[in-house]
Amino acid sequence: MAVNPFRTALAALGVAVLALALASLAAPSLIPTVSEAFVVTGLGLVLALFGAVAVRRRYLASGERTAFGTPESRRSLPRPGTEVDRELAANRVGPETRVTPPDVALIERLKPVAVDVVSRALNCAPATATEKLDDGSWTDDPHAAAFFSGQRAAELRAGQDSFFGAVFDRGPTRADLARRAILELSRLDETPAAEANGDVSGAPDDAERASENSDGTPDGAADEPGTKPEPEASEQ
């Protein structure tokens, strides 16, 4: 409790007046009488005011307490692919015409995987698969197709007929398209055709070269001493 001199004075004064009041109970004749009854009412109002202030303080008070956390469960580890989800969530790029650098990175990451999946699922050569991705004929889903074919997202808007649809529905974001593309590829990957063609896929070197280290440096580096030191710093 903070020792406030104002408060002490107030308290002392209060005690003094209380003593007077108790004295007046004992010997009424000692104290001068108060003129008006409405002074009492006035004091009553002052008290009510104080009461209101107290109520307000109650509503403003939140207080602090010790936060104990949750020791019952062990700490959770990251799931694979979390950084992609984060990127997709952060990528609020709207249906613009330009493809931005995060988009490019995403496409570059997804393309080889897509070629692999499509060539296995549709039982065709990688080159054919690439063509199908570029023109969108690999899937019936227009959003998934648009991710690789570069079709303008604005054209994919659903509610183009109604006035409100045209105004409010700005079309899917690049992130939405990416998500649909991944889901569609996942679905294709599970089809019996893709499973059967399991080991037949071209350009396996892509699996290594196209991806990068967590710190962004490509790691097809030769195993020589003196090459660029790539400290693969752990995350967090």
Binding site: L10, L13, A21, V34, V40
Partner: peptide
């Protein structure tokens, strides 16, 4: 209770509770 007593009581209580 005399009115004045009440007044003083009230006054005292205001001061005390404010403190």
């Amino acid at each position: 209770v005399a009115l004045s007593t009440l007044v003083f009581l009230l006054f005292a209580s205001i001061l005390l509770m404010a403190a």
